[in-house]
Simulated scan of single mutants.
Amino acid sequence: MRELPLLEQPDVQVCCAPLASEVLSEPDAQTLARQFAALADPVRLRLVSLLATAEDGAVCACDLVAPVGKSQPTVSHHLKVLVDAGLATSERRGRNIWYGVVPAALEALRGALATR
């Protein structure tokens, strides 16, 4: 079995200081709201978990249907929401699309919630 390369990771800029250290600007609030909204769905949380724990760093969309128990179009919709929010990345490989989580984006969200 050949090892698949990891998906190219986008540059992630930390948008905001921790919420408890200063008042958010409107653009930073919009960015955080979009990202947290993307995570505010049980299916998308499961997808992020599946992507984050993928051994090869990427998972074919076709392999995400059964674990979340949703149809392929529904899974594709949820993956698009995650990609649009900057929490996942995608790459076409032949006829399939592979997805990976963007660890830096998740870490930036964690940092925004930090109290110090």
Rank of each mutant, 00 (worst) to 15 (best):
E8Q: 15
R93W: 09
C15F: 13
L7W: 03
V102Q: 09
R93Q: 14
E3R: 08
V23H: 13
Q13A: 15
V23K: 14
H77N: 13
T74S: 11
Y99L: 04
L24D: 03
V81M: 01
V101A: 09
R116K: 04
E55R: 12
A37L: 13
V83Y: 10
L109Q: 13
L64R: 01
Y99M: 05
L87A: 08
A108D: 11
G94K: 08
E3K: 04
L87K: 08
V83H: 07
G57E: 00
A66D: 02
P67L: 03
F36N: 05
A54M: 07
P42C: 01
T115F: 10
A29S: 08
R116C: 05
A20S: 14
A108Y: 04
R92S: 11
A29I: 05
L24C: 06
R93F: 04
N96I: 00
D63I: 06
L6A: 14
A33E: 15
G69C: 14
M1D: 13
V102K: 03
Q13W: 11
L64D: 00
G100C: 04
A37I: 00
P73K: 07
R116I: 04
C15T: 12
F36E: 02
A33I: 03
A38V: 00
V83G: 02
L45W: 03
L87F: 10
L39D: 10
E3Y: 04
V43C: 09
E107D: 13
V65P: 04
K80S: 15
L109D: 12
E55G: 12
S49G: 11
L47N: 01
C15G: 15
G86Y: 00
S21H: 00
T89V: 07
L39S: 10
R46K: 15
L106T: 05
D63S: 11
R93E: 13
A33Q: 15
A105G: 11
S49E: 06
R44Y: 04
L79R: 05
T89Q: 08
S21V: 14
L39K: 07
P27S: 09
L24K: 08
S90A: 12
M1C: 11
H78R: 15
V101F: 06
L109A: 12
N96Q: 15
L106S: 01
D84L: 13
H78T: 01
P18W: 09
V43G: 07
A20V: 11
V59H: 04
A112C: 15
M1S: 14
L4K: 05
G86L: 06
E8P: 00
A61Y: 06
T115C: 06
E55D: 15
A105L: 10
T89M: 03
V83K: 10
L113A: 10
R2G: 01
K70A: 12
S21T: 15
A85Q: 07
